[in-house]
Amino acid sequence: MEDKTIQIIEALIFASDSPLPVNKIKEILEGIGAREIRAAVNKLNQRYDELPSALKIVEVAGGFQMVTRPDYADYLARLYKSRQTHRLTHKALETLAIIAYKQPITKQEMEHIRGVNVDGVVRTLIERNLITVVGREKAPGNPLLYGTTKEFLEYFGLKSLDDLPKLKEIDELLKGDEKFLESLDQVVLEQMAPEELGIANAEINQDENKSESDAKENDQDESS
């Protein structure tokens, strides 16, 4: 492949405001194949490695995107201090996971799985452009169906929906020592009243002072 072609592809990816799909490159560079484009991207990444460069090209949301390497994340975070979006809450992540794997899906189905109302979370996810309305279900009331967006793929660094982590099988789910239950135990011991709830243990005395001060803090929050 001519160096010129590789450079053109580099320029296109650099100047694109969103992940640049292979097809778009094909449209611009007539007669080029997908394999050649990939080869060019690999070549470019190889050059960046050799330089070394702070940049690299990643494949995300069905296209190529030029990004800074993770090593510089701290500095860039400082640059974008006030403009960085907040991380998603657990509530949002849970709901988003359900939508991602089950799309298109209605709010009612999400609520059946989560066991809680999802109105607020769905609104937040729409505002952040991670999900969108993709249609209406042909059922009584024609409820709205939701699905994920391209921005969702970009947000999680996924090439496509096939790239989502695999869901666990039942037997895997039944295995002990799950991450989230452990973290939950921890929070419960810290935030709740252990003796009241019958899960008291030797650590109570230490926790008590902490809980007390927490309670005071909350009191102040409410009065202010």
């Binding site: 994340a73 849970e94 989560r114 989502l164 982590p165 666990k168 799950e178």
Partner: peptide
Amino acid sequence: FKEVSFELQTLESERRKYF
């Protein structure tokens, strides 16, 4: 879904390092 949401959180953290 709860468990996979933790994996998504990891992906989120990873991707946030790329600008």
